[in-house]
Amino acid sequence: MIRFRIFTAFWVLAFIAVSCTEDVPEIPLGEFEKGVLIINEGAFGANDGEVYHYDPVSGDIKNDIFESKNGRPFAGLIQDLLEADGKMYLVANTGKVEIVDPKDFASLGAVDTDLNISRSIAIANQKLYISDYGPYDENFNSPNSYVAVVNGLNGGAVSKKIPVPSQPEGLIVAGNFLYVACSAAEKLQVISLATDAVISSEDVEGTPAKLKVIDGRLYLFARDAGNIYFHEINRNNFNIQNTIKIPLANATSNFAIGEGGDAYVITSTGWPDYNDAVAKVSMNSASVVNPSLYTGSGLYGIGFHPVSKEIYIGDNNGWQGNGTVIVINGSGQTVKTIDAGRGPSGFVFK
């Protein structure tokens, strides 16, 4: 699933700073440097992942901004999106990473060879680190998962593959280390950025999905049938020093961090009722505040707008066509809906 790790506060402050400093010549913002980027994952077998841009002020939506700028379709399923070092990295689980200019989405480079089922990306020391399931075996297991290393921020060839336990998902760089959430193996893996070698491997409770820094603390998000877990990682010994276990059933790996220790998690009951919901949970009290802040079916991506405090929910509309973004307020009431692309799965607020 998509992680959005944009330092919104930084951008807001930067914007205010630029706006308020009259002496500094005004540099026009790029087309997509403010507003909301809607990540549409795309449908399996169709490779129609794309990014839409939404301007909350005017209400304007720009479709397919990758294809519009580059004259070719993205042609993949977007699994992750990361903005770093003035570049935006779009990870396709069809085995490629596209690198674009965040201002206008003009293509800058790509990693399009030697990857299999790429999931997520992190940047450190002028290198790209890409988690990848590796090829499936005949039972659709992933015994040859790896983290691919690419020298250079504009993509190019994979220089090294670091083997990791099965099905690595989220990645994060903290200090001089790369943390990897290996979902099928249910392990947390730590790679030294100095040597590009695994230095720690630890079993975790639940299926780990993503890593996030929340209020300065490094958390690993995991889930099982009855609970979600925020495992806090000790950055000195790589151990899990504390676990916030919240009894939320049927959680998916899609969640957004709100304010004051709140998080919003998409749940899905599956058969026979197949009701989806957005649950509000509190990390501070390790409890479910509201199991159904919003209910629907086909709920897929979720994001928390740090300025408007609204919650953006992607509805895949049964995958029959394009999806819809439903914007709700903190009480769960629908504020507006936005026509999105195929399978809206995540958001970047700028």
Binding site: G318, G321, T324, I326
Partner: peptide, 14 residues
């Protein structure tokens, strides 16, 4: 339309 947000009604089949 199969759901509230579906935009299929009145449209040509894919």
């Amino acid at each position: 339309n199969i759901s509230e947000n579906d935009r299929s009604k009145g449209k040509q089949l894919p």
